[in-house]
């Protein structure tokens, strides 16, 4: 026999021997962790994983358990077992109401109470004094002079709950636009109030004034823009188009930084014709801030010069948007140029 075959044979025999008798040489078994596992039924598991399912859907509704004695119960029931996945917090057992018929599905248009908590059965609003608890119990106050001393007991009631999650779409989707109609709201007719005999007390501020002022403000805000007949139409000027106009005028706006007119902000209105040229005499002072009359006038003249001088053959503005730039209000604010 060849040496290699011998070595191989010996090695194989050794291996077989270890396989057979190896157990005799095994050391102490390694320590291992023992966990107790409770076995739950499939119904219980289903109840855990889908606790909010209404009971009537189950084929075999579980018989309601007997009401627990009116003893203080733990705030949160101990979970039976902890499933491997992140568990849904187990809901407390449904409040047993043996006499109550199975909750029927509310009609579609039934009003849903606006409550946060969702439970298999809707629970009405608890009495105000009641402490929230899963079991309802009446208040017991120790009666003075009673023969049998009674333990004081606070009234408890189940938390208010509903049996449906009402989505925003169902609850709040408006049928009509909430915006008020663009019509001038009619002023409320002041109801004639039977006045008492005139007294010597000072008369309160007349109410019609308030309603008129509020109405006017509301009407102006709501109906004003829509009612404006000259509102421009078409797309607004792009930022670039506005910037080009701004730059064009800036180049001709000469600011006397040492003068008092540099303390004045003026707003100048003007109208342009379709070629972008200022309509004759349409430049006007609309508003001003700061300075005296003389410096306002000087600031206005400088602004007017800037507008008229830089128009040349007309400002370069998109013809198709003429309605947007026919009337312009330009504010000249020298604040950033002012010497400090």
């Amino acid at each position: 026999m060849q040496t290699g075959t011998k070595i191989s044979g010996i090695a194989h025999l050794g291996l077989i021997a270890i396989a057979i008798f190896g157990g005799a040489f095994r050391s102490e078994p390694l320590p291992f962790e023992v966990r107790e596992v409770s076995v739950i039924s499939s119904e219980e598991y289903a109840a855990l994983s889908n606790p909010s399912r209404p009971p009537e859907i189950a084929e075999q509704p579980t018989a309601p358990s007997e009401p627990e004695p009116a003893e203080p119960v733990a705030e949160t029931p101990t979970p039976v077992a902890r499933p491997e996945r992140d568990p849904v917090p187990p809901e407390p057992e449904p409040v047993p109401e043996p006499d109550a018929p199975e909750p029927a599905l509310p009609p579609e248009d039934a009003a849903t109470p606006d409550v946060d908590r969702v439970a298999p059965e809707p629970v009405p609003t608890p009495p105000q004094d009641a402490r929230p608890d899963v079991v309802e119990q009446t208040e017991v106050a120790p009666e003075e002079g009673a023969d049998i001393p009674q333990e004081a007991q606070q009234a408890t009631a189940p938390e208010q709950a509903t049996d449906r999650i009402v989505t925003e779409a169902v609850e709040t989707a408006p049928i009509r636009s909430p915006r008020p109609p663009r019509t001038r709201p009619t002023a409320p007719t002041p109801t004639p109030v039977a006045q008492a005999e005139p007294t010597s007390e000072p008369e309160p501020e007349p109410a019609p004034d308030r309603s008129t002022a509020v109405d006017a403000a509301l009407a102006e805000a709501l109906a004003g823009p829509a009612a404006e007949p000259d509102a421009p139409v078409g797309p607004p000027l792009s930022a670039g188009e506005k910037e080009a106009l701004r730059v064009a005028v800036s180049q001709c706006w000469n600011v006397d930084v040492g003068g008092r007119s540099s303390q004045v902000v003026v707003t100048v209105g003007m109208s342009l014709d379709q070629s972008g040229k200022v309509v004759g005499n349409s430049v006007r002072l609309i508003d001003s801030q700061g300075g005296n009359d003389q410096s306002v006038q000087t600031a206005y003249q400088a602004a007017r010069r800037a507008i008229l001088r830089c128009q040349k053959d007309g400002y370069d503005l998109p013809a198709e948007k003429y309605a947007q730039w026919r009337d312009i209000e330009m504010t000249f604010n020298p604040e950033r140029m002012r010497i400090k």
Binding site: V255, E329, M337
Partner: peptide
């Protein structure tokens, strides 16, 4: 979007 076009000029020239 309504009313006149409003522009604010904050930079001018000193000359």
């Amino acid at each position: 979007q309504d009313g006149p076009l409003r522009i604010e000029i904050t930079e001018g020239v000193i000359e």
